[in-house]
């Protein structure tokens, strides 16, 4: 089972997911959003980052449909993995729920849907997305 090793830096993010919220950081110096969590802003190297809750809305930048997958994911094919540009200006890798081959296009609008991908009890809740408006 691919668990997640939640650490001191990522805990606020995963705590947010458990509450159905997508929490990101914003840099006080350059005002840009930051993901994944860091102690320094990757844009300006500022060291003052504040947590905030994102809207959960985004746009598909790219995607692939996996027809083969290793281990625990083998039984889930075909499934769609996408890179989503959140409206706040950061990019995330994610799973598009309820979608198969031909269902997702670049520029489709998507919305956060926290879900478990595996059946196991320890399967983590993850920030997945669903298409809300086709491209």
């Amino acid at each position: 089972m691919t668990g997640i090793n939640v650490d001191a830096e990522s805990r606020p993010f995963w705590d947010g997911i458990a509450e159905g919220e997508l929490r990101l950081q914003r840099c006080r110096d350059c005002a840009r959003a930051v993901f994944y969590p860091r102690v320094f802003c990757p844009h300006c190297f500022g060291g003052r980052l504040d947590w905030f809750t994102a809207t959960g809305a985004g746009t598909v930048y790219s995607y692939t449909v996996a027809h083969r997958a290793p281990g625990e994911f083998a039984g889930q094919v075909p499934f769609v993995v996408a890179l989503v540009d959140l409206d706040e200006g950061v990019r995330m890798l994610t799973r598009i729920l309820g979608a198969g081959p031909g269902d997702v296009r670049i520029d489709a609008r998507v919305r956060l849907d926290v879900a478990r991908l595996g059946d196991a009890e320890d399967s983590p809740e993850l920030p997945c997305f669903r298409v809300v408006e086709a491209a």
Binding site: G3, V6, A66, A69, V81, L117, L126
Partner: peptide, 15 residues
Amino acid sequence: PATLTEQFERPFGLP
């Protein structure tokens, strides 16, 4: 378990 920065990618199952 997916550690450090891989915790934000690996759980989604991308080969």
